[in-house]
């Protein structure tokens, strides 16, 4: 099944397609997270709504996990090969390459560690079991997992927040290069289209970074979650 790893181009296809899935997830996830600004009721309702999807949620989760794994092992394999063949120069001097393009690998690895931590923190509850087991009562009387409080308490920890901000910034750089690269890798290129998609990628990345970073900052400044 991993035969595509032998081909550079097919590997790039896999990276691009899994990239699309992951970008889709990030956009959805960001939109969901922004509900924190609408208060505990909105966020907790959204969270339980996802849980209620049941098997569908698991399908989505499995697709995401597979996409992430393929994305990671394929890129690691490509980077390893590339490092072997290109040894670099005494003086580095770039004409076209951007920082985000050269930073893809480091950013990717940081994001990977962050995602594992993030899952452990907010999905699996390994980091702080006490906040993970908090409950809230919705307006309709249903008692649910209090995601809102968990997030707020989590982000009051300065170190957690700083790590989050750093990782999200790297994610932005990763997306800036990644979103336009997906199109190039899949063969979608045009004299007008490519510069346009490069701009779009940068804007989307920036919006995602600002949106996500606004959450811990708002919490630390006490703008959000004061009542918890």
């Amino acid at each position: 099944m991993l035969g595509f790893l032998k081909s550079n181009i097919l590997s790039k296809f896999v990276v691009a397609i899994t990239g699309i899935i992951l970008v889709g997830f990030i956009i959805g996830h960001t939109l969901g997270n922004l509900l924190i600004f609408a208060g505990p009721e909105a966020l907790n309702t959204y969270a339980i709504g996802l849980r209620d999807l049941g098997p569908t949620l698991w399908v989505v989760r499995i697709v995401l996990i597979i996409a992430a794994i393929l994305h990671v092992i394929t890129t690691i394999n490509l980077v390893r090969q590339n490092k072997k063949i290109a040894s670099g120069y005494k003086v580095s001097n770039y004409k076209a390459s951007t920082f985000s393009a050269r930073f893809m690998g480091y950013a990717g690895l940081t994001i990977l560690f962050f995602v594992l931590y993030h899952l452990a923190h907010f999905t699996l509850g390994f980091v702080d079991a006490s906040t993970f087991n908090m409950e809230a009562t919705l307006e309709n009387g249903r008692v649910v997992h209090d995601v809102y409080s968990m997030v707020v308490i989590g982000f009051r920890n300065v170190i957690v927040s700083l790590f989050y901000i750093l990782a999200v910034s790297f994610l932005g750089l990763h997306l800036k290069h990644g979103i336009h690269s997906m199109f190039q890798s899949l063969g979608i290129h045009g004299k007008k289209f490519t510069p346009m998609i490069q701009k779009v990628a940068a804007i989307v990345a920036l919006i995602i970074v600002i949106s996500l970073i606004s959450i811990p900052i708002s919490i630390m400044l006490g703008i959000v979650g004061g009542q918890v």
Partner: peptide
């Protein structure tokens, strides 16, 4: 393309250098 891979050349990550 396969000869290119066989020669050991790397893969494009769109630096456009």
């Amino acid at each position: 393309v396969e000869q290119m891979d066989k020669e050991g050349f790397g893969s494009c990550t769109n630096h456009y250098e």
